[in-house]
Design a binder for these strands. Sequence first.
DNA 1: TGGAACAAGATTGTATACAAAATGCATAGA
DNA 2: TCTATGCATTTTGTATACAATCTTGTTCCA
Lengths: 224, 224
Amino acid sequence: MVETFQLQMNEYLPLRDVVFQTLRQAILRGELKPGERLMEIHLAQQLGVSRTPVREAIRKLELEGLVLMIPRRGAVVAEITVSDLEDVLEVRMALEELAVKHACHSVTPGQLAEIRRLAEEFKNTLSGDDVAACAQADMRFHDAIYEATGNGRLVQILNNLREQMYRYRMEYLKDRKSHRNLIEEHDGILQALESRDEALAAQMTARHIECQKEYFIQMLGPRE
Amino acid sequence: MVETFQLQMNEYLPLRDVVFQTLRQAILRGELKPGERLMEIHLAQQLGVSRTPVREAIRKLELEGLVLMIPRRGAVVAEITVSDLEDVLEVRMALEELAVKHACHSVTPGQLAEIRRLAEEFKNTLSGDDVAACAQADMRFHDAIYEATGNGRLVQILNNLREQMYRYRMEYLKDRKSHRNLIEEHDGILQALESRDEALAAQMTARHIECQKEYFIQMLGPRE
DNA sequence: TGGAACAAGATTGTATACAAAATGCATAGA
DNA sequence: TCTATGCATTTTGTATACAATCTTGTTCCA
């Protein structure tokens, strides 16, 4: 099985960053599967670069937890167990609640309008078939809320936690049965933000995460 | 000004990891100051290794946000502003509360005994003069609580957030006026855990963080 | 047939080499 | 004196080289 992920050299970026992003996406999207070994020479040849940028990219993936380093054996794509996923979701729940509560009193009218627009945009993508576009739109909606907190560190951690679950979110979005709930949940969060009701916003957000959690666990439970 | 941080090659670890930990500590402890450039050859020579492990270490520091990469100019130690510190503390507050509440119902009697022992040990170190030892003991006390949650991701993030503030915590611990409060706060948390009172535990933890926050802000406020 | 020992190949860890870019200084000209 | 230009130096980005280690497969012996 020969994977073929291409480097996209749009702008001038160091190769290591391009390789990092390429490998990162390949892992998060499941093109590189858990347990698979990342061998430097092979990756380098496939991407048309030398080992050096590949190694540096792997160092970053290592810190992010996406690959596991085994000394003198190299990197393997990290497994994600149900238990890992539950751990991540528990932290995410706490931080998403923090974010939305914070946003309730820090969001500007302009940001609120943007969030409203993004919620609408998300609804529109759901009617289409492009799951990746849905994921993008969903991400932008939530990002707008994160940004409204003005807490850069919170934004960074939440982004990271969300991306840990990219694969599973895609499955969730593919399932049309979840669409109705998603729209309602986003609307709920939006309304809570508009009325600046912290408690309600937290509650809506918690439900939003909880629904995903149940789906993931149901999806993964039987397998492992 | 010639910095002299030595590599400590206790066990067999890849050089890149030794370099990473060495540079990381040097930054967190303030030996490498914000704004300072990290030049590969110099660091390599100083540490007695080649550029390769140094570069790989820098890639990890970059992802962690401890250094800032400027393309074709290299790495500089990231600035930490008061605002950054407040951001970190806000996230930490939420996650410390999550951890202690979780621990309230997941801590085993054995773990509780260990936490009690570590609280005692912390008190003992406070009577001495070794600030680093105090920091260690404090860390172990909190780690034991984190571990009691059984949530590996939460442990990892909390550890990381705590280390972001290493420098400032040291100042806090040096100030003998804070000792009395610290002991009381730890006792409060311990008692809440023993009675498995989630609300009280969260409240005690919040106060613990809040005190540190006030100290840090008071300390840094005038300067920047 | 089973297992241990050894050898060949593959892979990582580290060092070094080389090219491209950025910086800084010196010098020339207005 | 001030500015601009060009050259030398420094530094990064990438590639390659070499050694240490691990894996694997084969052979030999019990």
